[in-house]
Amino acid sequence: MSMMNEFKEFAVKGNVVDMAVGIIIGAAFGKIVSSFVGDVLMPPIGVLLGGVDFSSLVYIVQEATREAPAVVISYGKFIQSMVDFTIVAFAIFLAIKGINSLKKKEEEKPAETPKFSNEEVLLTEIRNLLKEQKQAEH
């Protein structure tokens, strides 16, 4: 099988399409969470910590000169990214926990007893009668 055929088989499988949709939705969800953290959650936390704006927290490694901009370590953005990650991870955890509980409930449902056709019912009755006759002969 050529590599191109293998790729076509891989690309048209339903799982790949589902994964692509998940990635797109995940990226959009990530933007929403980033906005929530940066625009809603972090400002009040900054106020509680004495008016700190986390996105502007930096450590200056080298001051700016006329020839070069300042070299800084933006640890405030890192803190904000960590909060973003924690919220996204928790939201995904809750979603997966909900999905798993639904799957468990589905697995716990008793299986329906199969319904037999008229022919199957008649054949079962004939079989039972033959067994009874055979047992009566012995």
Results as ranks from 00 to 15, higher is better:
Met1Phe: 11
Met1Arg: 07
Ser2Cys: 09
Met3Ile: 15
Glu6Tyr: 07
Glu6Arg: 09
Glu6Ser: 15
Glu6Leu: 14
Glu6Ile: 15
Phe7Glu: 07
Ala11Phe: 09
Ala11Val: 12
Val12Phe: 11
Val12Arg: 11
Val12Trp: 07
Lys13Val: 13
Lys13Cys: 12
Lys13Gln: 15
Lys13Ala: 15
Asn15Thr: 14
Val16Gln: 07
Val16Phe: 10
Asp18Ser: 15
Met19Pro: 04
Ala20Asn: 08
Gly22Asp: 01
Ile23Arg: 03
Ile23Gly: 03
Ala28Asp: 01
Lys31Asn: 09
Ile32Asn: 00
Ser34Lys: 04
Gly38Thr: 05
Gly38Glu: 02
Gly38Cys: 05
Asp39Ser: 10
Val40Pro: 05
Leu41Tyr: 11
Met42His: 00
Pro44Ile: 09
Pro44Met: 03
Pro44Lys: 02
Ile45Arg: 01
Gly46Pro: 00
Gly46Asn: 03
Leu49Arg: 01
Leu49Phe: 13
Gly50Leu: 02
Val52Glu: 06
Phe54Asn: 01
Ser55Cys: 09
Ser56Gln: 07
Val58Phe: 11
Val58Leu: 09
Ile60Gly: 03
Ala64Thr: 13
Thr65Gly: 13
Glu67Ala: 12
Glu67Val: 12
Ala68Asn: 12
Ala70Trp: 03
Val72Lys: 00
Val72Gly: 00
Ser74Thr: 12
Tyr75Asp: 13
Gly76Asp: 08
Phe78Asp: 06
Ile79Ala: 02
Gln80His: 06
Gln80Ala: 15
Ser81Lys: 02
Ser81Met: 08
Met82Trp: 12
Phe85His: 07
Val88Glu: 02
Val88Pro: 01
Val88Ala: 02
Ala89Asn: 12
Ala89Gly: 12
Leu94Phe: 10
Leu94His: 09
Leu94Thr: 13
Leu94Ile: 13
Leu94Gln: 09
Ile96Met: 03
Gly98Ile: 07
Ile99Leu: 12
Asn100Pro: 04
Ser101Tyr: 08
Ser101Gly: 11
Lys103Phe: 11
Lys104Ala: 14
Glu106His: 15
Glu106Phe: 15
Glu107Lys: 13
Lys109Trp: 11
Lys109Met: 15
Pro110Asp: 01
Pro110Ser: 02
Thr113Lys: 08
Pro114Leu: 04
Lys115Arg: 08
Phe116Cys: 02
Phe116Lys: 04
Glu119Trp: 04
Leu123Glu: 14
Arg127Leu: 00
Asn128Phe: 05
Asn128Trp: 00
Leu129Met: 06
Lys131Asn: 09
Glu132Phe: 02
Gln133Ile: 10
Gln133Trp: 00
Gln133Asp: 04
Lys134Cys: 05
Ala136Asn: 08
Ala136Gly: 08
Glu137Asn: 06
